[in-house]
C-alpha cells in the first residue's frame, strides 16, 4: 500500500488511519534516531573477520552488511548502546565519545 506522509503535519482529525495504524511495514528505517547517542562505535576494518556476531546482536539494524561482508555502521539509526563492541571477538569495534 502507498504511504505518503509528505504533508503529515497538516493532516486533520480522521486523515490518518484509525488507531495510529501505518499501512506498511518495515518503516523504522525512515525514522532517524542516531541523534540519541552519547557514545559511537568505530569499526576497525583490519581487525574484522566478518563473523557477523555484531549483526546478530545489534538490537536495531545498524550493522550494514552486503553479501556476508561487514560494510560499516549505520549512524542514522545506531543509538550507541555498545553491544556490538562488547560482543566483537576480535575487538574490531570500539566505543568512542560522540562529538557533536
Amino acid at each position: 500500500m502507498s504511504w505518503d506522509i509528505k504533508n503529515l503535519k497538516k493532516w486533520k482529525v480522521g486523515d490518518h488511519p484509525a488507531g495510529a495504524l501505518i499501512p506498511t511495514g518495515g518503516n523504522a528505517v525512515e525514522y532517524k534516531t542516531g541523534g540519541w547517542r552519547s557514545e559511537k562505535p568505530r569499526w576497525i576494518e583490519e581487525k574484522c573477520t566478518h563473523c557477523m556476531i555484531c549483526w546478530v546482536f545489534c538490537p536495531d539494524t545498524s550493522i550494514e552488511v552486503k553479501e556476508s561482508k561487514m560494510l560499516g555502521i549505520d549512524y542514522d539509526h545506531c543509538k550507541g548502546c555498545g553491544i556490538c563492541a562488547e560482543e566483537c571477538p576480535t575487538d574490531a569495534i570500539v566505543m568512542e565519545e560522540e562529538e557533536k
Binding site: 503529515l8 482529525v13 501505518i22 506498511t24
Partner: peptide, 18 residues
C-alpha cells in the same frame, strides 16, 4: 500486507488528532 501497529508518534505527530 504488512502493517505497523503502535508506532511512535514523534514530536510533530498526530496525538491530539488521534
Amino acid at each position: 500486507e504488512p502493517i505497523t501497529v503502535g508506532p511512535f508518534d514523534g514530536l510533530h505527530g498526530q496525538f491530539f488528532e488521534f
